Computed example of a mutant assay.
Amino acid sequence: MKKIFLTVLGIAALLRSFSQQNPDTTGFQSRKLKVDEVNLVSSYYNQMGDHAAVTGGIGTQKLTDIANVIDVKLVKYDRKLRKHAFDLEIGIDHYTSASSDQIDLKANSSASHADTRIYPSLAWSMENEKKGTTISAGVSSSTEFDYQSFGANIGFSQKTKDRNGEFSAKVQAYFDQVKLVTPTELRTGGGGGRGDSYGSDNRNTFAGSLSWSQVINKNLQIMFLADLVKQQGFLSLPFYRVYFTDGSVHEEKLPDSRLKVPLGFRANYFLGDNIIIRTYYRYYKDDWGVSSHTVNLEVPVKITPFFSISPFYRFYSQSAIKYFKPYGQHTAADEFYTSNYDLSKFNSNFVGAGIRLAPPNGVFGVQHWNMIELRYGHYTKNINMNANIVSMNLRFK
């Protein structure tokens, strides 16, 4: 936790310079690129459990993760008074994992016990406020020791004439390269798993998303969402062990294609001026045999005009994929096999609350530091896994 708050305070000190600027109250739509909003999000995640996939579905799942994300939004208007928005984001996660440390079962501690992930992204959108249309595009990257991902997306949205409805469409593609870090006892050749001696394989993901949002009345807003996701390539994780009934050990083996279909519905109801009821439901199905249901409820309550609390709860339930069996139950007759309990049948609960402070004169009197939010959540699975997460969001505008 100490690392989180030191990071927050350090970056907040740099961003404090925004408070020296005078706000534009003329309503003039500047053609110059200017900073519209800066967000800093820091979080700490701690997990415990007994079904580590690295050791074949048994063993500790102890993991900690510290994440920091800074997001800068910039805007400008062109000669045709179209609004251009640019979103630059960079995130850095650092985690330690007791299960990953067991890639080498003989080591007291190995290089696999910790890693750092860096994930920058850049998004652009152009909104024609007169026509109610928006086009967008973005690129992203994610890098860690055994995984490299590049992504790109394009999107389009159209509002209805009365501006109460909006249709959106988006296409995304991710091109990943997986470093084949296998358990030490399964390695062959002279590389010994050091440095660039690992092989690699590819994984590609293509996704299409459609959504329709509608304002029903002054109290109710709804949204329908549909996605189609196709994955191809190396979809296993090479350092996940699978133990057969005869005691032999193998690396996880899964099909090289997967089709996913998530469908969602969202509804927000404004109960007077101080309470919002936010609901969300998603149904998911894929051709590996998983079907799942997600139900989410969040109720922000405004205590004062500048202070609110937001209790939330999420329930999730899924069936197992066709290729899952626990430790020591697979046989040589199985074409595909995994003992990863994330692909097993389970239910989970996530409960917590957030507090949000947005004073009119700025947080601690800093005018452009206009919001701070703290959230805590406790996550449990009915397969003996639990986690806690604390996050902080600072917004400068």
Rank of each mutant, 00 (worst) to 15 (best):
I4E: 06
T7N: 10
A12R: 08
A13D: 05
L14I: 15
S19T: 15
S19N: 13
L33V: 10
K34I: 04
V41F: 01
V54K: 02
T60Q: 03
T64L: 00
T64F: 03
T64R: 05
A67S: 12
I70T: 09
V72F: 11
L74D: 02
V75T: 12
A85T: 15
L88D: 01
E89G: 07
D93F: 09
Y95P: 00
Y95T: 04
T96Y: 09
A98Y: 04
D101K: 01
Q102M: 13
D104F: 07
N108D: 14
P120D: 02
L122E: 02
W124E: 01
K131R: 15
I135A: 07
I135N: 04
E144R: 10
Y147N: 12
Q148E: 13
G155V: 10
F156K: 10
F156D: 06
K159P: 00
K161Q: 14
F167I: 14
S168N: 11
A169G: 14
Y174E: 09
Y174N: 09
T182R: 14
T182L: 13
L186Q: 08
R187M: 14
T188A: 11
G190R: 10
D196E: 12
G199W: 02
N202R: 14
N204A: 06
G208P: 02
S211T: 08
Q214N: 12
N217G: 08
K218P: 00
N219H: 14
L220W: 12
Q221G: 01
M223K: 15
F224Q: 04
D227Y: 03
L228S: 13
L228G: 14
F239P: 00
R241E: 04
Y243K: 15
F244P: 00
F244E: 01
E251L: 05
L254W: 00
D256R: 11
S257N: 15
K260W: 03
P262N: 08
P262A: 10
G264A: 07
F265K: 07
A267D: 03
A267E: 05
N268R: 11
F270M: 07
L271F: 14
I276M: 12
W288T: 05
S292C: 02
V295G: 09
N296P: 00
I309W: 04
I309T: 09
Y313T: 10
R314G: 01
Q318W: 06
Q318V: 09
Y327S: 05
A333R: 12
D334K: 02
G354V: 04
G354Y: 02
I355Q: 00
P359Q: 13
G365V: 04
G365N: 04
Q367H: 11
W369G: 00
L374W: 14
R375F: 03
Y379M: 06
T380N: 05
K381R: 15
A387H: 02
N393A: 09
N393V: 11
L394E: 11
K397D: 09
